[in-house]
């Protein structure tokens, strides 16, 4: 075999006929090579493509996770609170004007005045106001009996106490 660099043939065998393949043989090989080259994606290219996709997925995943972590740790929330002018007890105000102030407040903030504790206190205040008014009429009509006056003072004391509790609720 003249064209085989690794020629281990004995001398007698080297004289045997040699055969050359037809030209069409290479054409078949060449066309097959061209066909497979056009459809074949090199293994290295596959590897690179897979690695690129994995890298993108990893980056997106890490970014997403990091964003979530940031959102969880530094949560900023917004809320809106409608402020109403707080009621304050004015010592110089009369008990009547303080009661009137609470009535006005309840018109604006019905939600606060509907609370059971508040309603209970308000009910006590109304009863005391009514008692105060009745006793005042009696004292003005008749002579001021010391017992009535003492009772009147006690009622006002109770009213003051209830008013204080109401203002605490507010």
């Amino acid at each position: 075999m003249k064209d085989n660099p690794e020629n281990k043939q004995p001398k007698w065998a080297q004289n045997l006929p040699q055969y050359t393949p037809p030209a069409s043989s290479w054409e078949v090989i060449e066309s097959e090579l061209r066909r497979t080259k056009s459809v074949r994606f090199e293994p290295r290219a596959w590897w690179l493509a897979a690695a690129s996709v994995a890298l993108v997925v990893l980056v997106v995943g890490v970014f997403g996770w990091w964003t979530t972590q940031q959102t969880n740790t530094e949560k900023i929330t917004y809320s809106e609170e409608k402020l109403t002018k707080p009621l304050t007890i004015n010592a110089s105000q009369s008990l009547e004007s303080q009661s009137a102030q609470i009535e006005a407040y309840c018109i604006k903030r019905a939600d606060v005045c509907q609370k059971p504790e508040f309603k209970n206190l308000k009910q006590q205040l109304d009863q005391l106001n009514a008692a105060h008014q009745e006793l005042k009429t009696v004292i003005e009509t008749y002579n001021p009996d010391p017992n009535l006056v003492a009772q009147f003072v006690q009622i006002d004391s109770d009213r003051t106490d209830v008013l204080r509790k109401i203002f605490e609720e507010i």
Binding site: M1, K2, D3, N4, L16, P17, Q18, Y19, T20, P21, S25, W26, I29
Partner: peptide
Amino acid sequence: LYDRYKTAMYT
């Protein structure tokens, strides 16, 4: 490469 080995291999 083909030309170098074609005869030996075909034979």
